[in-house]
Amino acid sequence: MGLLSLSADPEGYGLWEQPAEKAGMLLSLRMLGQFGAVNAGVAFAWHRIALAAYVARQLRLPLNADAPLAATLVPTGHLGLARTSLARWLTGQPPSDEDSALLADWLNRREHDTVLYAPAAWESVLLPVWDQHTIAWRRVNRSDWQVTNCARAHGFDELAAFRLREPPASAAPIVSVPGDPRALFTRVLKMDMLGLMAIGGGALARAQTMATDYAAVRRQGGKLIAAHAAVQQLLTDIESARLRVDQALGSFGLALDEVDLGAVAASRIDVHKHLCHAANQAVQVHGGIGYMRDLGVEKILRDQNMLRLQAGGIHDARQFVAGWKGASA
């Protein structure tokens, strides 16, 4: 047992090792919450590393024994969630020509850059690709693809940002999924989205403590600021956000296959808006000092923004949910 799985042992009980069981799901989500409370950037990196290990196990790929923490994953295509097409395909609706073309393009890494936020020393990344009308995977070594280092990102200060591009002749072999590729991809998206929410929930808990503590010592307007309705409103917004996240995560704390991806995606839209709003309110409680990097609350806001932008972001998630419910383009 370890926080992060470092072996191919199927009996392990680390992060994202046993999501098929309710206890394993709860363990993973709570762990990510705890990590997120300390540092959302690091939590995000570990989450994606654990997902990479999960997918590798499903694909029966050997883990990189020398540097298991250097293998990460990007669970989506180059932007968003492929409108309604991905959801339609995942739910087994017959894909139109347009759906197929869109999915092929969404997962086309040759003509589009894929954005990666990962520890600076990452060595390989697992990516979904479109292959023969289905989703397969590729493990790409850093040296095999064109990797552009980007300037500092909005948040996740502990990580670095990259653009990846598949070169015309790519060495990375395509690995098809033993079993049902739809099921695997659905699980990966669920774990990714739930993990992002859990990390955000942890970071929110930390922001809440900071804001509450500060409001209990800072005096303005002749009293502690916690005694002003304006500040009480800010603190209550944070509390409602926390309840929403807890409720959402609570309702998804089931064995992975009992969780509905459409519901996760729909809930993610709302949850991440609340997480960001709450982080904004936590900054606001602090006034000017909240804007300063020394304190750390502005970092929570930047990290919440970053979490919101991952897994396809929340704009396209609306189309995804529509597709999940059967809508076409």
Binding site: L79, C150, A153, F156, E298
Partner: peptide, 27 residues
């Protein structure tokens, strides 16, 4: 930022900086 999803977190897309700058004006 929502429109750009994960691209929106990159400095080169400019909006992440705009967010950090705008945030002050509310304080």
């Amino acid at each position: 930022m929502d429109l750009m999803a994960d691209h929106g977190g990159l400095h080169e897309q400019r909006v992440e900086k705009i967010f950090r700058d705008i945030r002050l004006t509310r304080i």
